[in-house]
Simulated assay, not measured.
Amino acid sequence: MASSDRNAVLRRLPLVAGALGGVLLLVNRLLTPEITDSQARADALGVILSALLILTGLLWQQVAPRSPDAVELIGEEGFELAPDLPQEVKNELAWASHLLLTNTVTRSLIVVYQGNVLLRRGILGANKEVKPGAILQRVLDKHKPIYLVGLKTYPGKIEFDYLPENTQGAILQPIGDRGALILGANAPRSYTLQDQNWVSGIADKLAVTLSNYLVDKDRASVGS
């Protein structure tokens, strides 16, 4: 049974117990030919307890958390890698993107490094180029992540034309000091703190790999 199903059952338990207790008290009262004072007091206490259980169950139903409304992202699913990457980098990008797409709410993913788009995967946006707007540029300059919990209501969402047009939430995670990992979700407020830590760890791993292969390669070409 899924966790959400177990929680739903637990939230209904007070309601069921209270209703059952009330029915049993009524049956007991109807089947008792003569009511004593002590039984009357016990019945009154039972009615109060049943009412409290029912009230608790109703309150739990009201405060039950609701999952964010998910949408179907507009675009075609794809997997694009820059053709001139070393095989080790391609393997690392494929591994990292697969983990994020299968273990988080991410539905669209882009890796930008040294001004180049290295990877696009998931539901692809219409624009293949990534021109840093104010938000992405801030991530690249400050090397700090930005989580946009409700992208559709954000005035600056126009800069994210490289993501599906109805992307609901986004994380922009720096990759070292030379790039960024851009994630798009199909529901607002859907990335948990654990998801954000997961994204940060994968970005750090990518930073090491990309720095070893791409930066060293650039230095070697300059030296030659």
Rank of each mutant, 00 (worst) to 15 (best):
M1Y: 03
A2N: 14
S3D: 09
S4Q: 13
D5Q: 08
L10F: 14
R12P: 02
P14G: 04
A19Q: 12
L20A: 12
G21I: 08
T32S: 15
E34A: 13
I35K: 09
T36K: 04
T36Y: 07
R41M: 12
A42G: 08
A44N: 08
L45D: 05
I48S: 13
L52P: 05
L55Y: 12
W60P: 02
A70P: 04
V71Y: 10
G78L: 10
L85N: 04
N91I: 03
L100V: 00
I110A: 03
Y113I: 07
N116K: 10
N116L: 06
N116P: 00
L118V: 07
R121W: 02
G122H: 07
L124K: 10
G125Q: 09
A126F: 12
L136M: 11
R138A: 08
R138K: 12
V139K: 03
I146Q: 11
I146R: 07
Y147F: 15
V149G: 03
G150N: 15
T153E: 07
T153A: 11
G156N: 05
G156T: 01
E159V: 08
Y162K: 04
Y162R: 04
P164V: 13
E165F: 14
N166G: 11
T167Y: 13
Q168I: 15
P174H: 13
P174S: 12
G176Q: 11
R178I: 04
G179D: 08
L181M: 14
I182T: 02
A185W: 07
P188M: 12
L193M: 09
L193H: 10
L193K: 12
Q194V: 06
Q194S: 05
Q194M: 01
Q194W: 03
D195G: 01
N197W: 01
W198H: 09
S200Y: 01
G201T: 04
A203S: 15
K205A: 00
A207W: 01
V208S: 05
T209P: 01
L210C: 00
S211T: 14
D216L: 14
D218S: 11
R219A: 02
